[in-house]
């Protein structure tokens, strides 16, 4: 009788148990959040006016990350040389590219761009250069420089924000579908 009682108590105790171990598996966030494959990272090139094309290179890398391969190829064939915000916006409008940009150094834009895994081209070096911001968390920022596309450059968040704000605070990104995260 005692054995039966023990078995019953055990059964009742186990009945409420749910295997939570799967749900509690920690999620490993990908770093950088915008992990553009090496083959899709567009290197900077000299345009026909002997100017660097860092803005276009940044846009092309982001277009590829967001699945717009044909648009990226077209952009590489069609555009080049230096850019400034108004002209770039007009070009993107003319090409009917879905995009967002800021020229006022609003950090919320950078946070949005990385939170939605789209990334953004941001100005650095006093506005003379544009790189891709591919990660931004509470401590660190990840940069993909089109002059050295082999590796991601990690800088403290505050340092990056100070650099960006001192470089006219221009950021621009296409708005399409980012590549799916790695399966967890």
């Amino acid at each position: 009788m005692k054995r039966l009682l023990c078995a019953l108590v055990l059964l009742v105790a186990c009945a409420g148990c749910e295997p939570h171990f799967l749900a509690n598996t920690p999620i490993q966030q990908e770093r950088p959040a915008v992990n553009v494959p090496k083959a899709d990272r567009q290197s900077n090139w000299l345009g026909n006016q002997r100017e660097g094309s860092c803005v276009h290179a940044s846009m092309i890398s982001l277009l590829r990350w967001q699945g717009r391969y044909r648009t990226a190829d077209y952009w590489r064939r069609t555009y080049g040389n230096g850019e400034w915000p108004e002209h770039m916006a007009a070009t993107l409008d003319r090409e009917k590219i879905r995009y967002a940009h800021v020229t006022n150094g609003d950090v919320k834009f950078l946070e949005w761009a990385c939170k939605t895994r789209r990334g953004a081209g941001i100005t650095v070096m006093g506005g003379a250069h544009m790189v891709c911001l591919v990660h931004l968390d509470a401590k660190w920022a990840g940069l993909l420089d089109n002059n050295r596309v082999e590796r991601i450059i990690w800088v403290p968040r505050e340092t990056l924000i100070a650099e960006w704000k001192a470089s006219y605070g221009w950021a621009v990104t296409p708005i399409y579908t980012p590549a799916a995260p790695l399966p967890q």
């Binding site: 999620i27 966030q29 990908e30 992990n35 494959p37 090496k38 083959a39 899709d40 590829r64 990350w65 699945g67 590549a179 799916a180 995260p181 790695l182 399966p183 967890q184």
Partner: peptide, 24 residues
């Protein structure tokens, strides 16, 4: 390149249909 670098190693066959939450 996206396939070769990110997904080739984690799909069980082709074609694959995969649905993921925002965290992957």
């Amino acid at each position: 390149a996206i396939y070769k670098e990110r997904y080739a190693g984690n799909v069980k066959g082709l074609p694959t249909v995969r649905m993921q939450k925002a965290d992957g």
